[in-house]
């Protein structure tokens, strides 16, 4: 792939001294939607945290739009254009939906060249219309689906070039999953590159262009999502009953 927006080469990450991912290679093209699929504990979240500078990267290179991220302080990464929705949402409780959307604009808006804060925030409400009349609600009072939308909306508020979504569909009712998938497709259609971590392989084929399969910290397969989703060994792997044989 020429000139990818995100390129991981030989990345090994660790948590509390224990190696989680080994020699991981992954790329996301400009405007592309890519899935990182694997069981719980396979290393998806740690990979995302490594990209965001929140987990120890022991070796390898993580380049975003030509900039090496591993040598940067973590708080500089959002300003480059990487939005992050963590697996457990990590909303700023005690604060309103609106405050959660505005905070990233205040912290990274200058680097992102954002001049009109209200315009950006209203753009997020346009995408997640369900949140428009909840803007003054404190986030701990939201439903699970709404909370996921706030987490994604907060990541979008820096007007990112790359959006990292860690298990955005997990634990949600089917009709909300369908709704959120449409939102993700809309985001991607706007030209924002998306990397989605997902443990349910059946969730991603209609959202992403390519998937990587991660198992025990290593990429074990990659390719067309619909083809891989039909592979019996992938399905078994996702159900936790199989060993991937390649």
């Amino acid at each position: 792939m020429t000139n990818p927006i995100l390129e991981l080469s030989g990345v090994s990450t660790a948590v509390e001294g224990f190696e989680v991912t080994r020699d991981l290679d992954l790329t996301v093209g400009r405007g592309e939607a890519v899935g990182l699929v694997g069981r719980n504990g396979a290393g998806k979240t740690t990979t995302f945290r490594g990209i965001m500078g929140l987990a120890e990267v022991r070796s390898g290179s993580i380049r975003f739009d030509g900039t090496e991220l591993t040598s940067l302080p973590a708080d500089r990464i959002p300003g480059l254009g990487v939005g992050y929705q963590p697996e457990d949402r990590k909303l700023f409780t005690g604060m309103t939906v609106d405050e959660n959307f505005r905070l990233p604009v205040w912290t990274a808006g200058d680097e992102r060249g954002i001049e009109d804060e209200d315009e950006v925030v209203e753009g997020v409400y346009d995408l997640f219309e369900e949140l428009s009349d909840r803007r003054d609600a404190e986030v701990q009072h939201l439903s699970g689906g709404q909370a996921k939308m706030v987490a994604i909306g907060r990541a979008l508020a820096i007007q990112p070039d790359l959006l990292l979504l860690d298990e955005p569909l997990e634990g949600l009712a089917p009709f909300i999953v369908k709704n959120l998938k449409e939102h993700v497709r809309t985001i991607n259609d706007q030209g924002i590159s998306v990397l989605i971590a997902e443990s349910n392989v059946t969730h991603v084929p209609d959202v992403v262009d390519r998937i990587y399969v991660i198992e025990r910290g290593e990429i074990v397969d990659s390719g067309d999502p619909e083809v891989l989703a039909e592979k019996p060994e992938i399905r078994e792997l996702m159900q936790g009953s199989g060993q991937y044989e390649g």
Binding site: M52, G53, L54, P73, A74, D75, R76, I77, P78, G79, Y84, P86, K90, F92, T93, G94, M95, L103, P104, T107, A108, E111, R154, I158
Partner: peptide, 16 residues
């Protein structure tokens, strides 16, 4: 306040 609530997430939105 956001930093007090979750300093890691604050970092992830660009807080020094």
């Amino acid at each position: 306040r956001a930093t007090a609530i979750d300093r890691e997430m604050a970092t992830a939105i660009g807080v020094d």
